[in-house]
């Protein structure tokens, strides 16, 4: 198979459109979940966990930076502008990752929810793992290379969240109750997570990813296996808004206002 380099993808409008649509989903998911992770920094329930979660957040933003960097090379603008200046309607992240960590603001009276944070992150990690697994032989060479590298880190993220889920399930009725409650609540938001958006079939046809069915299937199998192992009910998710189509909740706008606050003071300045 003839692989596409950056230049080859950039030179062909249809290729460029398809690659960018997939990259927006990857980049925006990681940027926003990384932002939610950053909000926890210094506040995690356990100091060792603060260190671990800090690393995970940093890696998520590192991955987002890589994807935005590819978009910059494809000619979509400066990576920092793409990360900070795009409107909510232009974002393609899942509505699940934009939901807050809990009540309150990170600067004032945060009442963050650890069980929710872990379950939400777990689903994101399972989805990203399934998706990247379907990109390692992508026709777009820089993405295939990135997928292999990022998958190595995702293994640890997933192991981290799975360990917490098992611990919460096994410890006592209180921790189990919190896990079950979080498991129930994520279903209201997770409908657009394992979704490649309106161009999914085109990604597949172009060889950008493996079959959408197999990628989505891997996600569902892994989540079902976890539910079975922990005695949790099967997950039945709703899709209220579809983030892959640019439909978002107010929570995304709040996140964007915060993450771009300094940059927007003067996007042309050197920060």
């Amino acid at each position: 198979m003839q692989r596409w380099t950056i230049e080859e993808a950039a030179a062909n409008p249809e290729r460029s459109r398809l690659v960018s649509e997939l990259l927006w989903q990857l980049a925006d998911d990681d940027m926003i979940i990384g932002f939610r992770d950053q909000e926890w920094l210094g506040l995690a329930p356990h100091i060792e966990e603060d260190v671990a979660f800090g690393s995970i957040g940093q890696e998520e933003i590192g991955h987002a930076a890589l994807y935005y960097g590819l978009l910059e090379q494809l000619g979509y603008g400066k990576a920092d502008d793409l990360a900070s200046l795009r409107t909510a309607a232009e974002r393609r992240n899942s509505v699940l990752v934009e939901q807050p960590n809990g009540a309150g603001h990170y600067l004032e009276s945060p009442h963050y929810d650890w069980a929710w944070t872990i379950v939400r992150h777990y689903l994101h990690d399972v989805w990203e793992t399934a998706l990247l697994g379907g990109l390692t032989d992508s026709v777009f060479e820089p993405l295939a290379d990135a997928a292999g590298k990022i998958l190595r880190e995702k293994r640890y993220h997933l192991a981290h969240q799975e360990l917490w889920m098992r611990t919460m399930a096994a410890h006592d009725p209180d921790s189990r109750g919190r896990l079950e409650d979080a498991w129930r609540r994520v279903q209201a938001w997770a409908g657009d997570l394992a979704d490649l958006g309106p161009s999914g079939a085109d990604f597949e046809a172009a060889g950008l990813c493996q079959s959408v069915e197999s990628i989505v299937g891997r996600y569902h199998v892994r989540v079902s296996e976890m539910a079975g192992a922990l005695g949790l009910p099967a997950m039945e998710c709703e899709t209220r808004q579809n983030g892959r189509c640019g439909e978002h909740t107010e929570a995304l706008q709040q996140a964007l206002d915060t993450l771009s606050e300094v940059y927007r003071l003067d996007p042309t300045a050197n920060w």
Binding site: G34, F35, Q38, A65, Y68, D80, Y106, T258, V262, Y263
Partner: peptide, 11 residues
């Protein structure tokens, strides 16, 4: 941290 201006500064 969540408000750092650029991707590099955020990391």
């Amino acid at each position: 941290v969540p408000r750092a201006p650029t991707l590099y500064r955020k990391l």
